[in-house]
């Protein structure tokens, strides 16, 4: 029972982080229907930028955090401006191929800069964050992850609900043509969504880095794990992304705990295929009715 509860707590925490990283992915897809294969690299870029600033630059944690967010936002913005904007209106395969190319390029760049080693962040979380419920302990990293995750979830909820840019973004996601005719600057919304997505990716990269240490290969493979999460939740639903993330996180930790650790990495993809066959638009996605 204790083992079960401990696994459940771990699963929820990991799942929440998957959910947060999937949020950025969903944001890009919602706004511009671009499926971003370079999401894991954006994640890794954020984590490594934070690492460089704290461990090598010696900056205090909060300053490094804010600088990282700013840099990732700019990175996302530039990527959209340089690479994605020329492809607006082009066929799907070219967009997919471009993001695959971007992922390969970023990965190469990061490996050149930081190498393939495993780094760990300097320990900055206070020990008091460690929670105990009877026999179950939640290590400080998970509590920190939980707090950061919940905070940014609430922040983005408010942003989309009340800020004008957030409302523009939702309008573009809802109906691009209608938004355009009502005077929404659609291209700016695309750029903004990439910026915010990169920023969210950086946050989840940092949190993942606190938990597992940072390594280019590990972090960029998380970018592929986003697919089961978003398919389960529905490709265009941000709440769905978080819930899908938690479900996948639970599934992974339970498989790892009870069945076998090697199956852990594949089980999300098996579920993905089943979900696609039964309920292709996910639990919360918008159903596009089109029969052939």
């Amino acid at each position: 029972m204790e083992f079960f509860l401990q696994l459940m707590v771990n699963g929820v925490c990991i799942g929440l982080i998957y959910g947060i990283s999937a949020m950025g992915f969903v944001m890009i897809f919602k706004a511009s229907s671009v499926i971003n294969f370079a999401h894991g690299e954006l994640l890794a870029a954020g984590a490594f930028f934070f690492f460089t600033l704290t461990a090598w630059g010696g900056l205090p944690v909060y300053a490094a955090f804010i600088l990282t967010l700013a840099a990732s936002f700019i990175l996302g913005f530039i990527v959209e401006r340089l690479f994605l904007r020329p492809l607006i209106g082009e066929p799907l395969i070219e967009v997919i191929m471009l993001t695959i190319g971007l992922s390969s390029m970023f990965k190469g760049m990061m490996l050149l800069l930081w190498g393939g080693n495993l780094y760990t962040f300097p320990d900055f979380l206070p020990e008091s964050l460690s929670l105990r419920f009877g026999a179950i302990t939640i290590p400080p990293v998970y509590t920190g992850a939980l707090i950061i995750g919940a905070f940014f979830l609430a922040l983005f909820g408010l942003f989309f609900k009340y800020s004008s840019q957030g409302i523009f973004m939702r309008s573009v996601a809802d109906n691009q043509t209608a938004a355009l005719s009502l005077g929404v600057h659609v291209k700016r919304v695309f750029a903004l969504s990439w910026g915010i997505a990169a920023l969210v990716a950086a946050i989840s990269g940092i949190v993942l880095g606190i938990i597992n240490g940072i390594n280019v290969h590990e972090l960029s493979s998380i970018g592929l794990k986003v697919f089961p999460v978003v398919i389960l939740g529905g490709l265009d639903s941000i709440t769905g992304a978080v819930i899908g993330g938690i479900l996948i996180g639970l599934l992974e930790t339970f498989t790892g705990g009870y069945l076998s650790t090697s199956l852990k990495d594949v089980i999300p993809f098996i579920v993905l295929v089943i979900v696609l066959l039964i309920k292709p638009y996910g639990l919360f996605g918008l159903v596009e009715i089109e029969r052939v």
Binding site: F83, M105, G108, L112
Partner: peptide, 16 residues
Amino acid sequence: PIRELVFGLAIILFVL
């Protein structure tokens, strides 16, 4: 790394 970098760049340049 160099391989992946150039490979990615080639794909991007062709697509664009």
